[in-house]
Design a protein around this nucleic acid. Structure first.
Length: 664
DNA sequence: GGAAGCGTACTTTTT
DNA sequence: GTACGCTTCC
């Protein structure tokens, strides 16, 4: 095995892969074969007889976790179903599923995503009689997150929300629910309050690896450190130039913390880039050199200079999409490039729309990652809410979602009655409804009572069935049938039954995915709870067999990936750097520059950038200029294609139309 | 009292 | 395009 490693890896990589004991800090530049190296390292661990059970690899995104697990399996040729490669959050769920009872929750807890969290905040406000105009749920959610993860303290203006936060937290507990931050913070609490529990996990995970270390938050670092202090076999891999999640609490100062906490560490730098041509690498290097706060690195490559980076200035986002589609067509036809080797990157999710349109028009197969996921679609979320209430009846947020979906005559008034009852007796809504069912002098009309009765019977019956029957997908099918979801969708979309059809198709697809998950032999415990936990943390529905498609995604989700040909669209002022980010704090310009850096370094051979002259955003057409970052790239590396057609008839007539519209 | 229909605002990036 | 709040309709 060592010979194989030596052959496959360069000296620093080899050193990394065979150093298994003690703390290890790997500073790895973009494209330096970081993932490859640590997958080989894992394979080597297994080879030396370390049990897969003892290895824990933590990544940042589900995509990266999946990719890494896949590669280790490919190298070793083993199934490795007990190897833990997961995101921090999924790992948190795993721990909590085993040990949350120490903290006073029950193990059928619900996980609230951002939408659920916002509903909860609104619900709490309603209860506390705070007017909806007096607060911004979105801002509060961010504040609560910062408080919970200890990025912020209660001080100044914030203090007025302190009680609100306490109430939010009590509600979560009462509903037996946790939010995303709890998935990190509760395990920490568990470790700190129950050293004996910590000990069992330290004994189990004797070799820990953290990828994309620069993106860990202080909380995640604490989480990881607790586990690592037992044996100190911890390897972290990071690149401060690729830190792009500070808005979420990521703190590359963690690299310094690591040096203090594990002073005996060994540090290895991977500086040879195997990915990009010299031209692309130079552009990236010149760009990132404008950042002041960074570890000096000199990325170099053995390959030749390659083709120039080309920049185009399409008139608007429609033209931009068409341009990219045309270029892709010609690369595929002329150079026999595969669709899946092409990446189209954008700063924000909303920029994908116009590009998608062009792809559809040009018949280019593509997949979008990021954005609203399949599981966030309304019709899917509704079904999931049923499953959640079945799994955890105290989950008020999900109960509220489905109590009148499909419509069963429960409106605002009825809900108020139920809420009052629940509050008075300190019940969950579900218990309150159960109680009202038998109440002698019910304040509810017989009609409503009977429909609530049906609802409860429905939930109870399906809970029985989900717990006892093996073929849970059939149970789900029968449930969707019993609810007459199809009838409901038809009724909701009377004017447009194609929408109803489409939504119902999605539900059927969801059931198929559920079935696939249940029958997957790699999945030792296919319970309803496990399924619900899993899908909450996943934001893509990517299946296998997605080969042969162009990858359209945000820069954030492109991290860790690479493509022969990359298009970076919307390289415009206010988009990259993003106006909102700078508004928040002008210092964010460095992180925006890192984003640009990440985008550039995804490309292996050829990079195109486009900057529109005007762009339709929300409702209006905005004049956008090219991104100021473009001036930081030495012009000799770039071919600019300025638009010379000042009197292009299309442009002129459009400008005229715009003027006319403006004048009314 | 509940449902349907209409108008208005979208919040950067992800777990 | 869609989610939410407000008004009007049944």
């Amino acid at each position: 095995m060592l010979e194989q490693l030596k052959k496959e890896l360069n000296e620093q990589q080899f050193d990394t892969a065979r150093t298994l004991e003690g703390p290890l800090l790997i500073i790895a530049g973009a494209g330096s074969g970081k993932t490859r190296t640590i997958t080989f390292r894992m394979a080597y661990m297994l080879h030396t007889g370390i049990h897969q059970n003892s290895i824990l690899a933590l990544t940042f995104t589900n995509k990266a976790a999946k990719e890494m697990a896949h590669r280790v399996k490919a190298i070793t040729g083993k199934r490795l179903s007990n190897l833990t490669v997961s995101t921090f959050h999924s790992f948190g769920v795993k721990l909590l599923r085993e040990s949350i009872h120490h903290l006073g929750y029950r193990d059928n807890f619900s996980i609230y995503d951002q939408v659920d969290q916002l509903s909860l905040i609104k619900e709490v406000a309603r209860e506390q009689k705070i007017s909806p105009d007096a607060f911004d749920a979105y801002v509060l959610a961010n504040l609560f997150s910062a408080i919970k993860t200890e990025r912020m303290k209660w001080e100044g203006e914030n203090r007025q929300w302190r009680d609100f936060y306490a109430s939010y937290q009590e509600h979560l507990m009462a509903y037996n629910a946790v939010d995303f931050d709890d998935l990190i913070m509760l395990p920490i609490r568990l470790f700190e309050e129950h050293p004996e529990v910590l000990k069992t996990y330290q004994d189990r995970f004797r070799y820990i690896m953290v990828d994309e270390f620069q993106d860990t938050s202080l909380a995640q670092y604490r989480f990881m450190k607790h586990l690592a202090l037992g044996h100190r076999n911890i390897c972290v891999v990071g690149d401060d130039d690729q830190s792009i999640y500070s808005w979420r609490g990521a703190n590359y100062q963690n690299i310094l913390n690591f040096e203090t906490d594990f002073p005996e560490l060994k540090e290895i730098k991977l500086e040879q880039n195997y990915r990009s041509t010299q031209n692309i690498l130079n552009a990236a290097n010149f760009l990132i050199a404008h950042n002041t706060n960074r570890k000096e690195k000199a990325l170099w490559t053995g390959t030749d200079s390659g083709k120039a980076i080309e920049i185009f200035y399409p008139r608007d986002e429609t033209k931009e999409g068409q341009f990219i589609a045309e270029m892709i067509r010609s690369f595929v036809v002329r150079d026999d490039l595969k669709y899946h080797d092409i990446g189209v990157l954008v700063r924000t999710n909303s920029l994908t729309a116009s590009i998608e349109e062009a792809f559809l028009e040009a018949n280019i197969p593509y997949k979008v990652s990021g954005g609203t996921s399949f599981f966030q679609r309304k019709e899917i979320k509704d079904i999931i809410s049923y499953l959640r209430v079945i799994a955890n009846p105290d989950d008020d947020v999900n109960l509220l979602r489905i109590i009148n979906t499909p419509r069963r005559g429960v409106g605002l008034r009825t809900l108020q009655t139920i809420r009052a009852m629940a509050e008075e007796r300190n019940f969950s809504l579900y218990s309150a409804i159960s109680a009202l069912r038998w109440a002698e002098d019910s304040p509810l009309s017989p009609k409503i009572r009977s429909s609530l009765e049906d609802f409860l019977t429905h939930i109870e019956m399906y809970r029985e069935r989900f717990l006892s029957e093996k073929k849970m997908d059939d149970v789900l099918r029968s449930m969707v049938d019993a609810l007459d979801f199809w009838g409901y969708l038809l009724q909701e979309h009377q004017t447009n039954d194609r929408v109803a059809k489409w939504k119902f198709q999605n539900i059927l697809r969801f059931i198929d995915m559920f079935e696939k998950w249940i029958s997957n032999p790699d999945n030792p415990k296919p319970t309803l709870y496990n399924y619900l936990n899993k899908i909450t943390l996943i934001n893509s529905d990517e299946e296998e067999g997605e080969e042969g498609k162009v990858n359209l995604m945000t820069i954030h989700s492109s991290k860790g990936l690479e493509f022969s040909l990359v298009f970076l669209a919307g390289v415009e002022n206010q988009i990259l750097p993003h106006g909102r980010a700078l508004e928040e704090n002008p210092d964010n310009v460095e992180e925006e520059r890192r984003l640009f850096y990440v985008a550039i370094t995804r490309a292996r051979e050829k990079l195109f950038m486009t900057a529109c002259q005007t762009r339709r955003m929300m409702r209006e057409v905005i004049e956008t200029g090219p991104s100021p970052f473009l001036e930081e790239i030495p012009p000799e590396l770039v071919e600019f294609h300025r638009e010379e057609k000042m009197f292009d008839p299309d442009t002129a007539s459009q400008a005229f139309a715009k003027l006319k519209a403006k004048l009314g």
